[in-house]
Write a protein that binds this DNA or RNA. Structure first.
Lengths: 112, 112
DNA sequence: ATAATTTGTCTTATACAAAAGACATCAGGC
DNA sequence: GCCTGATGTCTTTTGTATAAGACAAATTAT
C-alpha cells in the first residue's frame, strides 16, 4: 500500500523540516510576498505552501525546495552557483566507493 | 486535482535534490549499509530509497530527510544538537515580521 | 569462474497527498 | 474603528505516489 508509515520521524528530522518552514515563511515575508503569490510562482497550491511553512513532513521534496529557492533560503547553505561544484565533488567521491554492499559473514561493521 | 504540476523545477532545485541523493548514497555506502537495511530503518520501501538516491523530486520531504539523518548527512549543515538553537533563532526573527503582507499600491520589493 | 547477494527498474493495487474551494478570523492601512 | 485583503484551517474530489513484489543485470567474495 501507499504511505504505510509505521515509523515516526526522528526528532532531528522533524526539527529540520520545521526549520525549513520557518525559513521559507521568513523569506517570504521579508520579500513581502503573499502566500498566494509565492504558491503561484512555485506552481503549487496555497494550501501546500501553508503546509510547507507549517512543517508538514508529507509534502513533496521538490515543492519544498522550490519555494525555498524562490525566497532565497540557501539549500545546503550553498548559493546557486556553487551547488554545481558541490554536486560534482560529491559524485567524484561516490565513484570511489564500491557499487554494492556485501554483508560478509564476518562482521556487521554497522555504526556502533 | 492532486499533483498537477505544470511548472518545472528550477535548475537550482533539481541540483539540490540530486546532491541530497548523492550524499545519502555516499553516506550509506560508507557505512556499509545495504539499500534494504537503510530503507527498513527509515520505515520506507527500498524503491523509495532508490528514488531518493536518484534525485526524484516527488518523494516525501520527511522520508528524504529521515534517511539523510540516518546516514549522517547534516541538514542545513547543522549537526543534531545545534538544530534546535537555529530553530529558535529563526522563530525569534520571524516574530519580528508582520503577520500578513499587504500589497500597498507601492511596489513589490521582490527580490531584485 | 561461480555462487549468492545487491542493485536497477517495472508493474500493479491502493492509500493518500494535492488542488480547489469555502469560510471564519485576523491584520494592516486608511 | 472600518474595510479589505491575507491567513488559518477543513472538506471533497481525484490523480498519483507509495509499498510490494518480481526480474534481470551487476557486483562482490570465494
Amino acid at each position: 500500500m501507499a504511505g504505510t508509515r509505521t515509523h515516526t520521524y526522528s526528532h532531528y528530522t522533524r526539527q529540520a523540516i520545521r526549520l525549513l518552514g520557518v525559513l521559507v515563511r521568513t523569506g517570504r515575508l521579508e520579500r513581502r510576498m503573499t502566500a498566494r503569490e509565492l504558491s503561484e510562482r512555485a506552481g503549487i497550491s496555497r494550501d501546500m505552501l501553508y503546509r510547507i511553512e507549517k512543517g508538514d513532513p508529507r509534502v513533496q521534496l521538490g515543492a519544498a525546495f522550490e519555494v525555498a529557492a524562490i525566497v532565497g533560503v540557501p539549500l545546503f547553505e550553498t548559493e546557486h552557483g556553487l551547488l554545481e561544484a558541490r554536486l560534482h565533488a560529491a559524485r567524484d567521491r561516490l565513484a570511489l566507493l564500491p557499487g554494492a554492499v556485501r554483508k560478509s559473514p564476518g562482521k556487521v561493521k554497522d555504526d556502533f
